[in-house]
Write a protein that binds this DNA or RNA. Structure first.
Lengths: 374, 374
DNA sequence: GAGGGTGTTGCAATCGATTGCAATAAGGGT
DNA sequence: ACCCTTATTGCAATCGATTGCAACACCCTC
């Protein structure tokens, strides 16, 4: 509360900057008006200040350790230099690389990011967006949206720059960066088919998010394209992208008639769950069952067996999302651009040729495989 | 730039809130002064407003969808509701759970967090702290500090609330939350000794950070306490907490005379590197070599073999750090509190009894083991 | 009926930086 | 020598909310 440099009664304290120096402190020290300091220190305005004065001001600012108060500037200019990021779950190993890419690119432009963990109950999402807007964020990166998410309309109405990352919306109303989910599944399916697999299973992700729906569709399309009939593919849908839901879905798949010889998971976490389920049933990967994951999250090469998976460029995804957002902030002529990244298959130890017909642990399970040949 | 509700020349637009409504819009709608609105909406001040008026104001605010501008309030009150978090590397799987705990606790009090990834070159650390302070953060959580970090003095000088998490400083000048690193190592060493191991190796972390130094000291102390002579322990120090540095350090250890039968890593990532090194040397874990990690980062139970490790309560660590910070913000009578969490040993498949003297793949390596019996 | 509370509300300054406009000074042309 | 540019700088309003202080109304009491 006590301003120190006010020329008041006491004359003791000449300069005791208990708090951080303000633009006025710099101005007084130079004998100029605060507005001149502001101009001298702003690259866009410094041409309005005499070179000598500007130099003097910069020196004084440096000497005082002056840093402009971003909050105050933000209030006046209307931009905060803050970007809000909505994450489904920070602890999900797939997300940090994306976040890292986002902050990296944004950081070079002086933006800081506020990361908000939405958590499992997406009901809070709307409120969290509201809070971020109240904080004056200049833009939003959403890594959480569902296919028909109400927040999309909300953001559109608020006229705030937004990009989606690793997700897309059904109406393509917002710019987004994502991988080619269908191409990824094609890579996985083609790999398995070329190994000789003819009965494939898929553990799909939640169908209300784009990756879940698109990868499932991609799986079906790729299987059909490879000449596999619908009798030869089995799909179980996980309720969430977690190891536990993956395990449950895999158990359901294993309990069905016509067990496949290979399973493609929509996500590495689900693949971990498949490993768990196989262990429970006494099956071995890849001898009894091949498994393909998706995302190539960190350290899946250390699993037993090392996971064959579809790698997506997460860091690059973050970078591009940030760039798209910066574009949207700069020019409101947002062309609702959509960036699609190409996935890449990483073959490791969890996929192999299907076991021959003799001596297989799957012998029993395979009953009924030919009941209805297409 | 164009204020809409100004009673100006044109009379067309009655109420076209192109931008977000402000406290003045609410005030006009209710026929009261903005200050009254401010008071009515602030829990701490609302007792100064007549109940009926307050109700009317709240209704109007809700109808307009009014959200106070946090930036403006922050400018006036001096607090931003923002907390800065400095992370060593967001992509390190050990960190997200801590972050999650921090944001969880802080979020309940209305604080948002800005996470900054310092990256490998800690030279930027000082500048990043400076930037966060310029942003007006109300406090800082540092997960990066080294034992004698200059930023500590910097923060002390800036008189900004700070807590350390998963790290401690040498002078105990700042409140901190960390696990009992020495106790953790004792758990690991005692476990191995009870299995019959008598020659132990340690892959230490960087010695300029507390976890590296304390765990190394803890390893030595525990070994001595278990009656192991210094000839029977071998220590190699990794330059960073990464898988690759762990691999290199492990290779150095394996190339020394008197190879141990078990290695304790200062960190799970280093343990992954040990797995890599063992693979390169054709050694098997745990048959040829037992390995103990530290931190129990996600999914190390899926490794081959599943990693025996010392679990630390990361999420809780984050929660407590946040609480400490909130205390420091509330009462400046900061007692430089220090919270120590107890670690827990999680035994999995990477540790076993040492191989007997016959037929060991380690036969050659063990030469020289008895050169200088203690 | 006048004085002293108490309860509400308005006024205006303030936080720190930015920026349109005005004012001044310096320089150039005829 | 005078007028007109152009280059610098100062002034003051502004962003939106908060809060100490003043003002007002109303009620109770003696």
């Amino acid at each position: 509360m006590v301003r120190n440099s006010k020329s008041g009664t006491g004359r003791a304290a000449i300069a005791a900057p208990a708090s951080r120096p303000t633009i006025r402190d710099v101005a007084e020290r130079c004998g100029v008006h605060p507005s001149t300091v502001s101009r001298a220190l702003s690259p866009a305005m410094s041409h309005l200040v005499a070179a000598g004065v500007a130099k003097r001001i910069r020196a004084a600012a440096a000497a005082l350790g002056y840093q402009p108060n971003v909050t105050a500037a933000g209030l006046r200019t209307g931009r905060s230099g803050l970007i809000g990021v909505l994450a489904p779950d920070i602890a999900d190993p797939g997300f940090p690389p994306i976040l890292s890419g986002i902050t990296e690119t944004l950081g070079t432009q002086g933006y800081a990011t506020i990361v908000v963990d939405v958590g499992p109950d997406s009901s809070r999402e709307q409120e969290l967006v509201e809070r971020l807007i109240a904080r004056g964020v200049d833009g939003l990166v959403l890594a959480t949206v569902t296919l028909n998410d109400p927040v999309i309309g909300h953001c559109l109405a608020a006229a705030i720059p937004v990009v989606l990352v690793n997700r897309t919306d059904v109406g393509r109303k917002l710019p987004a960066v994502a991988t080619d989910d269908e191409a990824g599944m094609r890579l996985a399916v083609d790999h398995l088919v070329s190994l000789g697999h003819r009965r494939l299973g898929h553990i799909a992700g939640p169908q209300h998010v784009s990756t879940g729906a698109l990868r499932r569709a991609g799986f079906k399309a790729a299987a059909a394209r490879a000449g596999l009939s619908t009798q030869n593919i089995g799909i179980e849908t996980a309720r969430a992208y977690t190891r536990e839901e993956g395990r449950l879905a895999a158990l359901r798949l294993l309990d069905r008639k016509g067990v496949p010889s290979a399973i493609v998971a929509a996500n590495d976490l689900l693949a971990l769950g498949i490993y768990d389920a196989l262990g429970e049933r006494g099956l071995h990967c890849p001898a009894d069952m091949s498994v393909v994951g998706h995302n190539d999250m960190p350290y899946v090469d250390m699993l037993s067996p090392p996971l064959t998976t579809v790698r997506i460029a997460q860091r690059s995804m973050g970078n591009q999302a940030a760039r798209l957002l910066l574009d949207a902030i700069a020019g409101p002529g947002s062309r609702r651009e959509r960036v699609v990244l190409e996935p890449k298959l990483i073959v490791r130890g969890s996929t192999a040729k299907p076991r021959g017909s003799s001596g297989s642990a799957l012998r029993g399970y395979l009953m009924g495989a030919d009941e209805k040949p297409a």
